[in-house]
């Protein structure tokens, strides 16, 4: 009997052995599936240390810029192969948001520093061009420390929209010279306004897409500050929306409290703002009334993903907060 049982099992064992030589699993749903490479980055922590890795953007040349709150090199610059090609910045203890803007052919960065209570506009090599301070004249603010910005979005006319995600949850609109033009949102409409993006997916009708992270929602606002729509995403503590083509990509820091639960994943929405893929989470499903069923982590590839960047081939790069000082990972799109 034992021999027979063993012989019965041989094909199963063989299949298991063969399965063993396959590549890393493909993760994600629908058309958005990826292979995750946690070892994409070749940085040396002795020469280019990181604490929290916050946000990433790409310049015209394909270089990847990332903010970290390690003041030995607040900005790390990678090529697509994961090599460090530049590093600068020692004055940004709360380096958090990072926004890229092509200003009539001149490439600019906007660094959001919640510790300095400022947004700093720099060139790609780190020369400071302008700083945007706390909104002193706005009645919503009485002191500098109330303003702890986390993210920026640049409007079509160069206005700078700043999300005060660790402060009072207002969105502050500055003109390009730094004068406050409008203050909207706030704690009644936004709970942890952590991220903001200019959504240009509908031609000639740009709007702002704002994170209400503690509510697991994205909210659309007009450029004048009027609330337009709420997109519930239960289970998704969204860091910031990133628009690319018809899709919205974002890192989900956690899918359940507490904030250091290590339950993060990645999420991708279609042009109708419906979840089409949630790599490292459960299969996204909508019920008959169109409500998304709660998302939760299924694969512990990431602990606390904080931002996602999509390159020209739609591969993703993921920066993580509070995850043991890890460098960003790459997710190779699988077609």
């Amino acid at each position: 009997m034992k021999r027979r049982a063993f012989l019965k099992g041989v094909p199963v064992l063989g299949a298991g052995m063969l399965a063993g030589f396959k590549r890393d699993p493909v993760i994600g749903h629908g058309a958005f599936r990826y292979r995750i490479n946690l070892r994409w980055c070749h940085a040396n922590s002795a020469t280019h240390p990181v604490k929290n890795c916050h946000e990433m953007v790409m310049d015209k040349a394909g270089r990847i810029f990332m903010t970290t709150d390690d003041t030995r090199n607040n900005i790390l610059v990678f090529n697509k192969d994961g090599d460090i090609v530049d590093a600068w910045g020692h004055d940004y203890p709360g380096a958090h948001g990072l926004t890229y803007h092509d200003e009539n052919g001149t490439e600019m960065l906007y660094i959001t520093d919640y510790e300095r209570n400022q947004v700093i506009k720099t060139t790609l090599s780190g020369r400071v061009v302008r700083t945007f301070g706390w909104p002193e004249d706005a009645r919503e603010y009485t002191q500098k420390t109330e303003f702890r910005p986390t993210e920026t979005a640049i409007g079509p006319n160069g206005d700078v929209f700043v999300a005060d995600g660790y402060g009072r949850d207002f969105i502050i609109q500055y003109d390009p010279e730094g004068k406050v033009k409008n203050v909207f949102g706030g704690p009644l409409l936004l709970k942890n306004a952590h991220g903001i993006a200019l959504d240009t997916r509908v031609p000639d009708k740009p709007v702002l897409l704002v994170t209400s992270r503690a509510e697991n929602k994205l909210k659309r606002f007009s450029l004048q500050g009027a609330w337009l729509e709420t997109i519930p995403l239960p289970g998704a503590y969204i860091c910031r929306p990133v628009i690319k083509g018809p899709n919205v990509y974002f890192a989900v820091l956690i899918s359940q409290l507490p904030w250091d639960s290590g339950t993060g994943f990645i999420c991708i929405l279609d042009e109708n703002n419906r979840v089409v893929s949630a790599p490292c989470a459960n299969t996204p499903r909508y019920d008959a009334s169109g409500m998304l069923q709660p998302l939760y982590q299924t694969i512990q590839a990431f602990r606390h993903p904080h931002d996602v960047l999509a390159d020209t081939e739609d591969n993703l790069y993921v920066a993580q907060w509070n995850s043991g000082g890890v460098y960003p990972a790459r997710m190779e799109r699988v077609y």
């Binding site: 063993g20 030589f21 699993p25 490479n37 070892r39 939760y296 982590q297 299924t298 694969i299 590839a301």
Partner: peptide, 12 residues
């Protein structure tokens, strides 16, 4: 498969 695959991720 987990020993042969490069990055054996853990489930949640």
């Amino acid at each position: 498969p987990l020993y042969v695959a490069g990055q054996p991720f853990r489930l949640a």
